[in-house]
Design a protein around this nucleic acid. Structure first.
Length: 251
DNA sequence: CGTCCAGGTCTAC
DNA sequence: GGTAGACCTGGACGC
């Protein structure tokens, strides 16, 4: 991956072993840069988050106990802005569309994700003709403008920002193009695990995994309500249990 | 070729 | 508060 740090773009290679995440740069980085990179990577992989409370809640759950071995961390982007943009680009389109839009943004910004200011100054024809973002183009540009101008402080939505979950949800929903699905998705990445990500993938996957014929959103939410502040994470892990096998079982 | 819909959301009732 | 219709795009599918 390539990180943007200040005015520089820093290409990095990541690899994982058991209990180890190795970050390798092409050339030697100054000490200050190493500190920055380490901080960003720790944040991306949620390495400083504590899942003790969650593990205690699922320890005796036959469907979820497996996760106490170390599951639950979401892969974040370096900034909340980037996660909101990416999430917006997953709405109402296939994965190929999401990848096309994000790849176009990254390519025009020189290989690392663009800053809000850069995205705000891109002409609408870029969003229409290159990213082919359709009606999302205006949403993306406006969002970038609000963040670049300081009108919208997305970093404040992190737990350290001191806002309650309902306040954060409210702010996310006030962004054009961000609805219930996208808000829940971003909040999960923020480490706010209360709400379920309900969309065209999780709904049928839930039915398959639970063996139900059909289940309304309210029903699904009721079934995970016992996990309280971790309901969304419990739901997510319930759905993605089999990803472990596919990834070789490495937590 | 037309229709449907994919990791939805907005607006107008 | 709940729901129909519109919305960019492109790939899948039926005819």
């Amino acid at each position: 991956m390539t990180l943007r740090i200040g005015d520089e773009t820093v290409p990095l290679q990541l690899s994982n072993g058991r209990d180890v995440l190795e970050v390798r740069a092409a050339k030697k980085l100054p000490r200050s840069m190493v500190t920055r990179v380490t901080g960003i990577v720790r944040r991306m992989f949620c390495l400083d988050d504590d899942y003790g409370t969650f593990y205690a809640a699922i320890a005796r759950d036959p469907q979820l106990a497996w996760a106490t071995a170390g599951a639950g961390r979401m892969l974040r982007s370096p900034t909340v802005f980037e996660d909101v943009v990416k999430t917006l680009c997953t709405t109402n389109c296939a994965w190929s569309g999401t990848q096309r839009m994000i790849a176009a943004l990254v390519a025009q910004a020189g290989g690392a994700f663009p800053t809000p200011a850069r995205m705000a100054e891109l002409p609408s024809r870029f969003y229409r003709d290159v990213a082919r973002a359709g009606y999302r183009g205006a949403y993306l540009r406006d969002l970038a403008g609000d963040v670049a101008s300081g009108r919208l402080d997305l970093e404040r939505l992190l737990p350290a920002g001191g806002l309650r979950d309902d306040e954060v949800r409210e702010r996310l929903l006030s962004i054009d193009g961000i609805g219930p699905y996208a808000a829940a998705h971003v909040m999960m990445l923020l480490g706010r695990h209360g709400s379920l990500i309900l969309d065209s993938w999780t709904r049928p996957t839930y039915l398959r995994r639970s063996g139900s014929k059909r289940a309304s959103d309210r029903t699904i939410e009721r079934r995970f309500a016992r996990f309280g502040a971790f309901a969304g994470l419990a739901f997510w892990l319930f759905l993605t249990h089999d990803w472990l096998e596919e990834e070789g079982g490495n937590l």
